[in-house]
Amino acid sequence: MNKILEKEHFSANVVKLVVDAPLIAASRRPGNFVIVINNAKGERIPLTIADADPVRGSITLVVQAVGDSTRAICAMEPGEYLHDVVGPLGRPTHIENFGTVVCSGGGVGVAPLLPIIRAMKEVGNRVVSVLAARSKELIILEQQVREYSDEVIIMTDDGSYGTKGLVTQGVESVIQREPVDMVVTIGPAIMMKFVALTTLKHNVPTLCSLNTIMVDGTGMCGACRVTVDGKMRFVCIDGPEFDAHKVDFDEMMLRLKSYQK
């Protein structure tokens, strides 16, 4: 049982929860995720760790209400308990001074991107962050991203904030004006697919972080399997990060709909 310590609404459907989890807070690294069960009859769902405070013994989760379980989690209040939180899972992000790194995040994907932005900045990269959402109120964590980025480009579908356009246009504008050594992209599968297609055109190495259906999160079930470079890989233990140019996003998107009616 893990107590919810703080809650903040980022937007109508997105909340930030600070959760008591001292062991995970002490051992997690950027890129890791946890499996959460909200109540005794809940399902196991993967959520990326957006931040951690080892001193306080807490981790930060950013949750978007998309299904029954995430809706239930978003409705929970400080003082209530998540039934189970286990992790940290997945391989941590490979952090290195590549030179210039473009970090592109869509929607709630900005949350797991934040620790990577910070780590990339801390080892000396020039970090240009591209945040994208449908409209202004769906842009999250902008201030925190600004703190660790050399430049922040905001893209909105409706033009209500930043530049009107898609995340790919933001990423491409950077690639066209300066040498980019690495792109990191986290967001909806369709967004990562198009970021990957864009960067492939310019031959810029690109890392994506996948969020697939999982049960155990420890390699046991294979629900999270994706095809990467023609080979079957498990997101939970081989990932969650992969070379975005080699991921079969179309297959992944079909599999994400496994339990949609």
Binding site: V215, M220, C221, A223
Partner: peptide
């Protein structure tokens, strides 16, 4: 075709 939806390991099926 092994990655099609509704093809899963026995581990996944039984664990669920």
């Amino acid at each position: 075709g092994e990655s099609l939806v509704n093809i899963m390991s026995s581990n996944e099926y039984l664990t669920r």
